[in-house]
Protein backbone atom coordinates (compact mmCIF):
# COMPACT_ATOMS: atom_id res chain seq x y z
CA UNK A 1 0.00 0.00 0.00
CA UNK A 2 1.38 3.38 -0.92
CA UNK A 3 0.53 6.92 0.04
CA UNK A 4 1.16 9.88 -2.29
CA UNK A 5 3.81 12.19 -0.92
CA UNK A 6 1.59 15.16 -1.76
CA UNK A 7 -0.67 14.02 1.13
CA UNK A 8 2.00 15.25 3.57
CA UNK A 9 2.33 18.45 1.58
CA UNK A 10 -1.40 19.18 2.02
CA UNK A 11 -1.15 18.51 5.75
CA UNK A 12 1.79 20.94 5.79
CA UNK A 13 -0.36 23.57 4.06
CA UNK A 14 -3.04 23.18 6.77
CA UNK A 15 -0.38 23.79 9.44
CA UNK A 16 0.83 26.86 7.54
CA UNK A 17 -2.76 28.15 7.30
CA UNK A 18 -3.18 27.77 11.09
CA UNK A 19 0.16 29.51 11.58
CA UNK A 20 -0.96 32.43 9.39
CA UNK A 21 -4.29 32.67 11.20
CA UNK A 22 -2.62 32.88 14.63
CA UNK A 23 -0.01 35.27 13.27
CA UNK A 24 -2.75 37.60 12.03
CA UNK A 25 -4.65 37.31 15.35
CA UNK A 26 -1.52 38.03 17.40
CA UNK A 27 -0.51 41.06 15.36
CA UNK A 28 -4.09 42.35 15.35
CA UNK A 29 -4.39 42.04 19.15
CA UNK A 30 -0.98 43.61 19.71
CA UNK A 31 -1.74 46.63 17.53
CA UNK A 32 -5.35 47.07 18.71
CA UNK A 33 -4.83 46.64 22.46
CA UNK A 34 -1.11 47.29 22.89
CA UNK A 35 -1.29 50.91 21.87
CA UNK A 36 0.33 52.57 18.89
CA UNK A 37 3.87 52.65 20.19
CA UNK A 38 7.24 52.25 18.51
CA UNK A 39 7.98 49.04 20.42
CA UNK A 40 4.74 47.43 19.16
CA UNK A 41 5.56 48.47 15.60
CA UNK A 42 9.16 47.21 15.82
CA UNK A 43 8.23 43.86 17.40
CA UNK A 44 5.35 43.23 14.97
CA UNK A 45 7.50 44.13 11.96
CA UNK A 46 10.38 41.96 13.17
CA UNK A 47 8.04 39.02 13.71
CA UNK A 48 6.47 39.39 10.25
CA UNK A 49 9.84 39.75 8.50
CA UNK A 50 11.31 36.67 10.24
CA UNK A 51 8.13 34.69 9.46
CA UNK A 52 8.39 35.62 5.76
CA UNK A 53 12.08 34.64 5.72
CA UNK A 54 11.29 31.28 7.37
CA UNK A 55 8.47 30.56 4.91
CA UNK A 56 10.72 31.63 2.03
CA UNK A 57 13.53 29.28 3.10
CA UNK A 58 11.02 26.43 3.52
CA UNK A 59 9.55 27.21 0.09
CA UNK A 60 13.01 26.98 -1.53
CA UNK A 61 13.49 23.45 -0.19
CA UNK A 62 9.90 22.36 -0.77
CA UNK A 63 9.98 23.64 -4.37
CA UNK A 64 12.83 21.27 -5.23
CA UNK A 65 10.95 18.16 -4.12
CA UNK A 66 9.04 15.91 -6.49
CA UNK A 67 5.63 15.54 -4.83
CA UNK A 68 4.45 13.00 -7.40
CA UNK A 69 6.34 10.25 -5.58
CA UNK A 70 4.59 7.79 -3.30
CA UNK A 71 5.57 6.50 0.06
CA UNK A 72 5.37 2.76 0.63
CA UNK A 73 3.58 2.20 3.93
CA UNK A 74 3.10 -1.56 3.63
CA UNK A 75 5.69 -3.08 1.26
CA UNK A 76 4.19 -5.06 -1.61
CA UNK A 77 5.13 -8.75 -1.60
CA UNK A 78 5.72 -10.62 -4.82
CA UNK A 79 4.16 -14.06 -4.90
Amino acid sequence: MSLPLSFFYYIYLIFVAVFLFYTFSNVYHLIRFGGKTLSVLVVSSFYIVVSIVMLGIAWRYIGQINWQQSLEIIPAFKL
Binding site: F8, Y12, F15, S51, M54, I62, I65, W67, Q69
Partner: peptide, 18 residues
Protein backbone atom coordinates in the same frame (compact mmCIF):
# COMPACT_ATOMS: atom_id res chain seq x y z
CA UNK B 1 10.82 9.70 0.41
CA UNK B 2 11.91 10.50 3.96
CA UNK B 3 13.71 13.70 3.01
CA UNK B 4 10.52 15.61 1.91
CA UNK B 5 8.72 14.64 5.14
CA UNK B 6 11.77 15.74 7.12
CA UNK B 7 11.81 19.14 5.35
CA UNK B 8 8.10 19.65 6.06
CA UNK B 9 8.50 18.64 9.70
CA UNK B 10 11.49 20.97 10.29
CA UNK B 11 9.65 23.85 8.64
CA UNK B 12 6.52 23.33 10.75
CA UNK B 13 8.57 22.89 13.92
CA UNK B 14 10.47 26.19 13.55
CA UNK B 15 7.42 28.13 12.34
CA UNK B 16 5.51 27.06 15.44
CA UNK B 17 8.43 27.71 17.80
CA UNK B 18 8.51 31.23 16.39
Amino acid sequence: TMYPIFVLFVSIYYLYMW
